[in-house]
Structures are given as C-alpha cells and as structure tokens.
C-alpha cells in the first residue's frame, strides 16, 4: 500500500474543498470499516493520496425535525441514533436496527453515513432506511442534490456518489399514524454478528387494507432493494384476511429471481419467508390492538 497523507478538518467547507482538489481522497469518519481495511491492507485503499478525516465536523452530527422530515447528519453514530428521542419517537424500527450493529464500541464510533456509503449487502441500516423512503443529500462545493436512497445505492458496495461529493444528511418523511412497521433480523449468534438475513417492512393501513407497502430484505439480494412483486401483492389486501404463507412464498421467489440460485438459497428462501410472516404478524397484531383491522 502506498503512503498517504492524513488530512483533518472541523469545517465542512474545507472538506468539500479537499474533495474538489482532484486528488484521490478517501473519507474517514468512524473508521470501523476503514481501519479494518487498513489493517488488512485492502485493495479498497489502493492508490489513495489523502485520507480525509471528517469525524470532527460538528454540523454533520445533528438530528432534528424540519419540514415534516427527520434530518439525520451523516456523522451521527449508531449509539446517538438509537438513543435520540426523535428517532425513538418516530422510527423505532431504525433504533432496533442500529442497536444490533457490531458491539457497543463499534456503535460508539461507526456512523450512519458510513453504513450507507459502504453499501454492504448486509448493511444493517439500509433495509429500514429504504423501507422508510429516505432521501440523501449529497453536497459538493457548487451546491447539493437530493436523491432517493434507492437511487443512491447502485450495486454491492457501490453508490452514485461523485468524487467531489460528501453525503451530508439523510431525510426521512415523518410517518402519519396509519403507518406500521416491523424489523426482523437473523444472525449466527446474538451479538457482534453480521446479519445473515434481515427484513424491514413498512405499510399504511387504510380502511382495513394494506396500502403503500414497502418490503426490503437485507443480506438477501446483491444489495438491499425493495421486493416490488411482494409489495404489489400486499397492497389492497385486507389485513384480517391476509394469506401469510403466500406472502412468504412470494418473497422467497422474488429473492431468488434477483440473486439467482446460490449455495445459501436452500436456507435463505424459507428463512426469508419466515421473516416476512413474522413481520406481517407483528403488524397485524398491532393493527388489531389499534382497532383498525
């Protein structure tokens, strides 16, 4: 690995200036992935000129509500995310997902922006963030653009972030009271484990019918993406009459259609079906408790 220089700044404007310089710059925030790459001399760090530490830029550590959206700065750590009163109030699913990332030490350093930018097929935050229809704000010296997160992640470990851009903020539309969600996760053991399979499901319930469904599995497809066929099959179904087996079966089939038959398919197909059923059951119980079923 060639030698690189470490640059640090507390100012977003200075960071953007470095990124615009045309040198090969790699961003460093929480370091929980990057320092592992460094220890293992990963090809992901090959040829970089500068490592740019952005971990001390305070303005990217905010969580606030603005324009009916929750804004999460990209440098918010998983610990901050799961302990924040606003996240806990509006997005318990996100809290649930953030709390099982790595270990306490990892969650104290690892950032939301890093989890998204790394775009791992097993990224814990991507399924819930996609199901919640998040948008990302990408900022460069010349200005910023806002994209749906579903367009930002373009492949396994791939995003459409330009070399001069920095992911600054995540925006989540605040849910109305008729939205329900469930997050499910399987790991090989209880803690400090990569998700073997996960699932985020968000639905609206109107007049006893599922609407506007969004179902995103993790560690199931080359990169986390919605299962559009299951969503379509779910919409307009009566909550009380739902065929859970059928929904589970459809999800397994759609996963295989997206990923192809793999060595893990005999395990993951029924396991995903089971997660879909669990998520739907959890939501059906909640809807019944609210007297809306």
């Amino acid at each position: 690995m060639k030698d690189f220089q470490l640059l640090t700044t507390r100012e977003l404007s200075a960071a953007l200036q470095y990124l615009a310089s045309g040198s090969k710059v790699k961003l460093l925030a929480g370091g929980t992935d990057l320092l592992v790459d460094l220890a293992q001399k990963s090809h992901r760090l090959a040829g970089i000129d500068y490592l740019l530490d952005i971990s001390q830029i305070k303005e990217l550590k905010l969580i606030r509500v603005r324009d009916n959206r929750l804004e999460i700065g990209s440098l918010v750590t998983h610990t901050d995310l799961s302990e924040n009163p606003l996240t806990r109030r509006y997005f318990p699913m996100l809290v649930q997902a953030a709390r099982v990332i790595g270990s306490t030490q990892i969650r104290n350093r690892g950032t939301v922006g890093g989890n998204i930018n790394h775009a791992s097929p097993a990224a814990d935050l991507l399924p819930p963030l996609l199901a919640l229809r998040s948008e990302v704000e990408l900022t460069a010296q010349g200005g910023s653009r806002v994209l749906p997160l579903s367009q930002f992640v373009t492949g396994p470990y791939q995003t459409c972030l330009r070399p001069d851009e920095l992911l600054t903020t995540l925006r989540l539309p605040l849910p109305s009271p008729d939205y329900y969600g469930s997050f499910q996760r399987i790991g090989r053991r209880k803690a400090v484990t990569i998700a073997r399979l996960s699932l985020a499901l968000v639905v609206r319930v109107t007049n006893g019918l599922f609407q506007d469904s969004r179902l995103v599995p993790g560690s199931a497809t080359p990169y986390p993406q919605p299962l559009a066929r299951v969503e379509a099959a779910l919409n307009n179904q009566a909550v009380a009459m739902l065929d859970l087996e059928e929904m589970g079966r459809l999800a397994g089939e759609e996963m295989v259609a997206l990923s192809g038959e793999r060595w893990s398919t005999p395990y993951k197909k029924p396991a995903l079906a089971s997660l879909v059923k669990k998520a739907l059951l959890a939501i059906m119980e909640e809807v019944a408790a609210d007297g809306k079923g």
Binding site: L6, T8, L28, G30, G31, T32, L35, V36, A39, Q40, L51, D53, S55, Q56, T79, G102, S103, T104, Q105, I106, N108, R109, V192
Partner: peptide, 28 residues
C-alpha cells in the same frame, strides 16, 4: 486488530471505543 475482541478498549470522550479502530490523527 480489527475491532472484534475489545482487548484494546479505552474510554474516548466518555465512550468505550476500540483503540485499534481509531487513528490518533483524528483525535485532536
């Protein structure tokens, strides 16, 4: 050396962190 074992845990600004996953240059 990759943040799995916690033997290098120290308290940084009040929080437990793996000191193998932090560059000192980040810590002014």
């Amino acid at each position: 050396s990759i943040g799995e074992c916690g033997a290098c845990t120290v308290i940084l600004n009040g929080e437990a962190v793996n000191s193998c996953l932090v560059l000192t240059g980040q810590l002014d």
